[in-house]
Structure formats: structure tokens, C-alpha cells
Amino acid sequence: MRAIETDIEDIIVARYLDLQGEVCPFTYVKTKLALELIESGDVLVIVLDQGEPIENVPRSVKDEGHHISKVERDGTAFKLWIRKV
């Protein structure tokens, strides 16, 4: 069995943002604003619709150097745990 990161389970989620129903670029803009409100090392959880949001937001988050620790599928949406760089 491969080691799947579990350290995240113990971390308190500093902020939660449901972006279902939002469209680009607001999905990323709101993610970015939420990240600005938390401390470095803290975790933001976002929920994204499939399609354009899930195709673009994780890539942009990665490009800014943040760490995506965990991803969960929730029906047609995706829940992402982002640790601020």
C-alpha cells in the first residue's frame, strides 16, 4: 500500500470556500482572496465544479507555489485541501 498523505487530517482548516456554481475567473479570484486571508502553512478547503473550474484552478494554485495536500471527489464536485505557501 502506498503512503497517502494523512498529516492533513490533523490540521485545522483555516478557511472553507464553496465555489460550486461559480465561473472562471471568479473561481480563482475568490480562491486567491481566501488564501490572502490565511497564514502561511494554514489550509484552505475549496469545493470546485467539474469542467472549467477543476481544469484551471488547481493549476493556477500550483503555479503560485501552494501545496495541494488532498483531493476528494464529492459527486460531480471536487474538494481540495490547499496549504498556503
Binding site: R2, I4, P58, K70, V71, R73
Partner: peptide
């Protein structure tokens, strides 16, 4: 080893 089986690659 580093793959967390998130399935985003398959999704996009």
C-alpha cells in the same frame, strides 16, 4: 510513490 490517487489527471 508520490501519487495520491486524486484522479484529477483523469478528470481533466
Amino acid at each position: 510513490e508520490s501519487c495520491i490517487n486524486c484522479g484529477l489527471c483523469a478528470e481533466v
